[in-house]
Computed example of a mutant assay.
Amino acid sequence: MSNTPHQLAEEFPEYVGKIRHLREADGHFRRIADEYDVMNWAIHRAETDIEPTDDLRMTDMRKERMRLKDEIYGILTRPEVVEELP
């Protein structure tokens, strides 16, 4: 997928390290990031006519990719809770 547009590292270059860490440490983040990658790949294949689709399906896929991207961004930008030692 090296030349597939809209990869998370390209969308959020300032969070590449955090994305890598969360993929390893947070099961929910890993799941939605994987879903994003699958959806992004499907959109790329449709846009390049490798697996053409109709306009309605393309719109639905793009909306789902945006929903996932918004959720990912929310996780990346939420303040981290730092526990203080007693």
Rank of each mutant, 00 (worst) to 15 (best):
K18W: 02
R67C: 05
E71V: 11
V82L: 13
A25P: 08
E11S: 10
R62C: 02
V16K: 01
M66A: 13
D70I: 06
D49N: 13
G74C: 08
I43D: 08
E35F: 07
E14K: 04
D54W: 05
E10L: 11
M66T: 15
D37I: 12
D70H: 08
Y15M: 02
L22C: 07
I32K: 03
E14V: 01
I32E: 00
S2C: 03
K63T: 15
I72F: 00
M1K: 11
L85G: 14
D34L: 12
V38P: 01
R67H: 08
V81M: 12
E83Y: 13
D37Q: 07
A42P: 06
N3K: 08
H6F: 14
E51D: 14
Y36Q: 02
E83M: 09
P79I: 05
D54K: 06
L8W: 02
R23M: 00
G17P: 04
G17D: 10
L68R: 04
L22T: 03
R20L: 11
T4I: 11
T48W: 13
E71L: 12
R57T: 15
R65G: 07
D49Q: 14
T59A: 15
E10A: 08
N3F: 10
R23I: 06
I43G: 13
D26Y: 00
H44W: 10
I72P: 00
Y73E: 07
R20W: 07
R67L: 10
G27D: 15
I32Q: 01
D34R: 02
V38S: 01
A25G: 04
W41V: 13
P79M: 12
R65Q: 12
E64V: 14
M58H: 08
D55G: 13
E10D: 11
G17W: 08
D26V: 01
P5V: 07
R30C: 01
V38M: 07
R45S: 13
D54T: 12
P13M: 08
V16M: 02
K63F: 04
I75L: 08
R31P: 04
R23P: 03
A46G: 07
A42T: 13
P5E: 10
F29P: 00
Q7T: 07
D70N: 11
T53W: 10
D70W: 09
E47M: 15
G27C: 10
T77K: 11
A25T: 15
T53Q: 05
H44E: 04
D70G: 06
P13R: 01
M66W: 15
I50M: 14
R23H: 03
R62V: 00
R30Y: 07
K69D: 02
G74E: 09
Y73T: 09
H44C: 04
R62H: 11
G17K: 05
M39N: 06
D26I: 04
I75P: 04
P86T: 08
M58D: 10
A33R: 00
V16Y: 02
R23S: 09
P13Q: 04
R62D: 10
E71C: 05
N3L: 15
P86V: 12
